[in-house]
């Protein structure tokens, strides 16, 4: 069973608030899934290369050519809070 403190640490890394009521079920469910996942630990995978991409594409680079930008008001239109110039956020170290 994954520790309560570990759940809280992971939640913080993921920037997820977990209420007191959510904490215990989360720990339990994560544990169940992690137990299942643990079956791959039994496999002998020495010398097996990891797969990150299944496609075999090369040369997918973009020419350095400008494309139109979004108009400023469109870029800002969906933001929950804006100032005259940009996206407004609580200051990181306030």
């Amino acid at each position: 069973m994954i520790e309560r403190s570990e759940v809280l640490a992971v939640a913080r890394l993921a920037r997820l608030e977990l209420s007191e009521e959510e904490l215990e079920p989360m720990a339990r469910e994560l544990s169940t899934v992690l137990d299942h996942i643990a079956t791959i630990r039994q496999l002998d995978l020495t010398g097996v290369a990891p797969t990150s991409h299944v496609v075999d594409v090369t040369g997918a680079l973009r020419p350095d050519e400008p494309r139109p930008c979004l108009p400023r008001e469109v870029a800002l239109a969906q933001a929950p809070a804006v100032s005259a110039d940009g996206f407004l956020v609580p200051s990181p170290q306030a």
Partner: peptide
Amino acid sequence: GCELSFGERPNTHTCAVCLGLPGSLPVANA
């Protein structure tokens, strides 16, 4: 494909990719 900015008005050189809009994807500059 946004042109680099040199002191232009804030948030005038953006697009779906560099704003991190949902569904956008990066493609590396050759």
